[in-house]
Simulated assay, not measured.
Amino acid sequence: MDRDSPTPRYEAYEAAVVSDDGRSTECTIFPRDVDDERRTTAWITAREEAYCSAATMR
């Protein structure tokens, strides 16, 4: 074990799920405490047809 390695830093994330009049559902995940410089680049969005259950991937 390398004791000189920096301690890992974990961020807290939030998710927002938005449904567009029944056509598509999107889930956006973003850091809870993101600073203004990263606010427009520190997120990921997936449409309903692009993700699956974690249980099906095991």
Score class of each variant (00 low, 15 high):
Asp2Phe: 09
Arg3Leu: 15
Arg3Glu: 14
Arg3Lys: 12
Asp4Arg: 13
Asp4Trp: 11
Asp4Gln: 14
Ser5Lys: 15
Pro6Cys: 11
Pro6Thr: 12
Thr7Val: 11
Thr7Ala: 13
Pro8Met: 07
Pro8Arg: 07
Pro8Thr: 08
Arg9Phe: 11
Tyr10Gln: 06
Glu11Arg: 13
Glu11Val: 05
Ala12Cys: 03
Tyr13Asp: 01
Tyr13Ala: 06
Tyr13Thr: 04
Tyr13Val: 09
Ala15Glu: 06
Ala15Asn: 00
Ala15Leu: 08
Ala15Thr: 05
Ala16Met: 10
Val17Ser: 05
Val18Thr: 15
Val18Lys: 11
Ser19Ala: 12
Asp20Ala: 10
Asp20Gln: 14
Asp21Arg: 14
Asp21Cys: 09
Gly22Ser: 03
Arg23Cys: 11
Arg23Val: 15
Arg23Lys: 11
Ser24His: 13
Thr25Val: 13
Thr25Glu: 08
Thr25Phe: 01
Cys27Ile: 15
Thr28Gly: 02
Thr28Phe: 03
Ile29Ser: 03
Ile29Pro: 00
Phe30Ile: 02
Phe30Asn: 00
Phe30Ala: 07
Phe30Gln: 07
Phe30Arg: 11
Pro31Glu: 01
Arg32Trp: 01
Asp33Trp: 04
Val34Cys: 02
Val34Arg: 00
Asp35His: 03
Asp35Phe: 02
Glu37Trp: 04
Arg38Pro: 00
Arg38Asn: 11
Arg39Trp: 01
Thr40Val: 06
Thr41Tyr: 04
Thr41Gly: 12
Trp43Asn: 09
Ile44Ser: 11
Ala46Trp: 09
Ala46Thr: 08
Ala46Lys: 12
Ala46Arg: 15
Arg47Leu: 15
Arg47Ser: 14
Glu48Arg: 10
Glu48Lys: 12
Glu48Phe: 06
Glu49Lys: 15
Glu49Ser: 13
Ala50Leu: 08
Ala50Arg: 11
Tyr51Met: 05
Tyr51Gln: 00
Cys52Pro: 00
Ser53Leu: 06
Ala54Ser: 10
Ala55Phe: 01
Thr56Pro: 00
Met57Pro: 00
Arg58Asp: 08
Arg58Phe: 06
